[in-house]
Amino acid sequence: MNQQCLVAEFANREKLAIALEALGKDGYSPQDYSVVTASDSANELSGGDGGIADSPPSEKTTGAATLAGGAIGALLAAPTMIGPFLVAGPIAGMAAGAVGGGLLASVKSWGLDDKASASYEKNLQAGSSLVVIEGDNPKLNAAAQTLQTCDPVSVDRYQA
């Protein structure tokens, strides 16, 4: 079997939440993918400043917040903090040794080169999130098709 890795980058938490919901609707469970995000996500998701809005949110805003909160809540339920990042899913154990070096470069089985790793880490620090799926061609083809519908910054494949 030819193992590969799919890395989808999302610019913000709302798009990440939509992507995770889409994966769920396609039959993927949290054990099938990993999510990497900046460690300040918990503060950002909890509201950050603690302020109270001047008016109640609209139905559309409430729906988006519920969607984002549910999907991200599942992500944050059991993450592993590695340096400045939160890692949830099957790769958390593999990435645990990354404290001394780059997070993504430490997971050599993904096939990322140093340039791609550094680029992803820079984007993570700027607020992006990654969804990582390992598998064979049919699995990754289906996942890529689903994730492309969720407005990713990029969806790239690497030879594991």
Results as ranks from 00 to 15, higher is better:
Q3N: 11
Q4I: 08
V7C: 11
V7P: 01
E9R: 13
E9S: 13
A11P: 00
N12L: 06
R13W: 05
K15N: 08
K15P: 00
A17Q: 09
A19D: 02
E21S: 14
G24I: 06
G24L: 03
G24P: 04
K25P: 00
P30F: 08
Q31W: 03
Y33K: 03
S41A: 15
L45D: 01
S46P: 00
I52N: 11
A53R: 09
D54Q: 03
S55G: 02
T66I: 14
A71W: 10
A71N: 12
P79F: 08
T80R: 12
P90G: 12
G93C: 10
M94S: 14
A95Q: 12
A96R: 15
G97N: 15
G97V: 15
A98N: 14
K108F: 04
W110I: 13
W110A: 09
W110C: 05
G111N: 02
D113C: 02
D113M: 02
K115I: 01
S117C: 15
S119K: 15
E121Y: 07
N123K: 07
L124Q: 06
Q125W: 04
A126P: 00
S128E: 01
S128I: 01
V131A: 08
G135S: 10
D136W: 05
P138C: 07
K139S: 09
N141A: 11
A144K: 03
Q145V: 04
C150D: 01
P152W: 07
Y158G: 00
A160D: 05
